[in-house]
Computed example of a mutant assay.
Amino acid sequence: MASVLTVDDSPSIRQAIKIALSAAGHDVVEAGDGAEGVAKANGGSFALIITDLNMPVMDGLTMIRTLRAQPAHAGVPILFLTTESDDGVKAEAKAAGATGWVTKPFQPDQLVRIVSKVLAA
């Protein structure tokens, strides 16, 4: 299926994403913060990036802005997966280039459905 980069400072969240998406046939690569996410995105080819918002080193908004400034990543869908539910933060994420938003905690089947929908668009 698709190659997906998941960026989150929580190993358990990354593992939950990997289990859910791998079971659906996707290849999942993990990064622990935005800086590592940018490095892995630049070193590979991904159909989708899923990122947390609040992370050390580089947060998700900065990571999205960094990736969107690069032509190679301008069209790659990026989903935020975070506990934040504030409308202002959502608007800021959308302005930065986020494709969509998934609130933690998430159900694995819900995540798979959203990923499938985004990849089909």
Score class of each variant (00 low, 15 high):
residue 1 M to A: 14
residue 4 V to L: 08
residue 5 L to Q: 05
residue 5 L to I: 00
residue 6 T to R: 06
residue 7 V to G: 04
residue 7 V to M: 04
residue 10 S to T: 12
residue 12 S to L: 11
residue 13 I to Y: 03
residue 15 Q to Y: 00
residue 17 I to L: 12
residue 18 K to T: 15
residue 20 A to M: 02
residue 20 A to Y: 00
residue 20 A to H: 00
residue 20 A to F: 07
residue 25 G to K: 00
residue 26 H to Y: 05
residue 26 H to Q: 10
residue 27 D to N: 02
residue 29 V to Q: 11
residue 29 V to Y: 04
residue 30 E to F: 01
residue 31 A to I: 08
residue 32 G to A: 14
residue 38 V to R: 09
residue 39 A to S: 12
residue 40 K to Q: 15
residue 41 A to P: 05
residue 43 G to C: 12
residue 45 S to V: 01
residue 45 S to T: 03
residue 48 L to P: 00
residue 48 L to V: 08
residue 50 I to M: 12
residue 51 T to V: 05
residue 53 L to E: 10
residue 54 N to Q: 14
residue 54 N to W: 10
residue 54 N to L: 15
residue 55 M to E: 11
residue 55 M to P: 05
residue 57 V to S: 05
residue 58 M to Y: 10
residue 60 G to L: 10
residue 61 L to D: 06
residue 62 T to A: 15
residue 63 M to F: 03
residue 63 M to N: 06
residue 65 R to N: 11
residue 66 T to G: 07
residue 67 L to A: 02
residue 67 L to W: 03
residue 68 R to G: 09
residue 77 P to N: 03
residue 79 L to W: 00
residue 81 L to V: 07
residue 81 L to Q: 02
residue 81 L to N: 10
residue 83 T to S: 09
residue 84 E to M: 10
residue 84 E to C: 03
residue 85 S to A: 12
residue 86 D to N: 13
residue 89 V to F: 09
residue 91 A to M: 04
residue 92 E to V: 07
residue 96 A to C: 04
residue 97 G to C: 08
residue 97 G to S: 04
residue 98 A to Q: 02
residue 99 T to M: 03
residue 101 W to R: 13
residue 102 V to E: 10
residue 102 V to A: 15
residue 104 K to E: 07
residue 106 F to Y: 01
residue 108 P to F: 08
residue 108 P to T: 15
residue 110 Q to N: 10
residue 111 L to H: 08
residue 111 L to K: 10
residue 111 L to Y: 09
residue 112 V to S: 10
residue 112 V to M: 12
residue 112 V to R: 06
residue 112 V to D: 15
residue 115 V to F: 00
residue 116 S to F: 01
residue 118 V to A: 12
